[in-house]
């Protein structure tokens, strides 16, 4: 198999898109992905569907897929470094969801999605332990998922307030991408949280990061909080995007030469409230990035399985 940077040339350009997960629109006034696409097609070039297989796919995701519109599959329930998590039932269900959505690729936070077995009440999201020993098992999980689906599997830097281990988050994900022979999703809001938690400027460790592997960016609002004087940021996907997040986004766009997709994560907010975030994202992107994607047909990658 050619290495990732060769394979990356075949990944479709999806442009600017939106995220959803099961039941996201149950909140009154929450964003309707189809309405956003009707209102401003270039803001909704694709739908990133967050999937916890125990919940399944909701009507919004199914309708989007049925219309043949582009998607990506964001897993919400697999601990990549736990071989036991790749059980037959989960793989079969995941295969069905992939067949329904026909995503351009799979992605998701490379962290701890659940403790113990995958079970009711066990779900959470913790970042990986930032040590060299964490890299190989997680890379193995990425390869396994890629082999099973025939799709690229792009790990994402998770959010967190408690980061264990000495490595910088970007250093860890650089090692993971290399070991897994894969690309990356950089969540700019999550990275801003990490930098703050370590007391670092937003662009720390940008030099030396393999930007050519960054295929997708995430932009999201965050809520600043304090615990006994410790400042931290809640990843609330609200409409207030931190200045640090925009600083990281801008710098990432300038460096990520293979960028294919940018997601604004704002699924539980009213349409009018999120339009300014999309506008601010589009302003930072090359004109061709959004205009080409808005008019391109669905181009899901061909599964090899």
């Amino acid at each position: 198999m050619p290495d990732f940077l060769d394979r990356a040339h075949d990944l479709p350009k999806l442009g600017l898109g939106i995220s959803t997960e099961y039941g996201a629109r149950r909140r009154d006034g929450a964003l309707d992905p189809a309405a956003l696409r009707r209102r401003e097609p270039s803001y909704a070039g694709f739908l990133e569907v967050g999937v916890e297989l125990a919940k399944g796919l909701d009507d919004d995701a199914l309708a989007w897929a049925a219309a043949g519109l582009p998607t990506t599959y964001h897993f919400l329930d697999i601990n990549l470094d736990e071989p036991e998590d790749f059980d037959d039932a989960w793989l079969a269900q995941m295969g069905e969801a992939v067949a329904t959505l026909r995503p351009a690729w799979l992605c998701g936070d490379a962290g701890l999605w659940h403790f113990g077995a995958r079970d009711r009440g066990h779900m959470l999201l913790l970042p990986p332990v930032l040590v060299d020993e964490s890299v190989a098992p997680m890379a193995e999980g990425i390869r396994r998922l890629r082999d099973y689906t025939g799709l690229e599997v792009l790990p994402e830097n998770p959010p967190g307030s408690a980061f264990v281990g000495e490595l910088h988050l970007l250093e860890f994900f650089a090692k993971l991408a290399e070991a897994g022979d894969t690309g990356l999703v950089l969540d700019c809001a999550h990275l801003a949280m990490f930098q703050r938690s370590r007391g670092l400027p937003p662009l720390t460790a940008f030099d030396g990061f393999p930007w050519e592997r960054v295929i997708e960016l995430h932009i999201a609002g965050g809520r600043e909080g304090q615990v006994d004087g410790l400042g931290w940021v809640e990843d609330d996907h609200g409409v207030d995007v931190l200045e640090d997040t925009w600083t990281i986004t801008q710098a990432a766009i300038e460096r990520a030469v293979n960028l294919r997709a940018v997601v604004v994560e704002c699924e539980r907010n009213p349409l009018d409230a999120v339009l300014p975030i999309f506008a601010a994202a589009r302003e930072r992107l090359p004109v061709a990035f959004t205009s080409a994607a808005a008019t391109s047909p669905s181009t899901p990658a061909q599964a090899r399985r």
Binding site: D81, E82, L112, F115, L124, L126, P128, V129, V131, E133, S134, P137, A162, V164, G165
Partner: peptide, 9 residues
């Protein structure tokens, strides 16, 4: 690392 994460939980 898994044991570290389990203890963290």
């Amino acid at each position: 690392p898994q044991r570290v994460q389990q203890a963290l939980v």
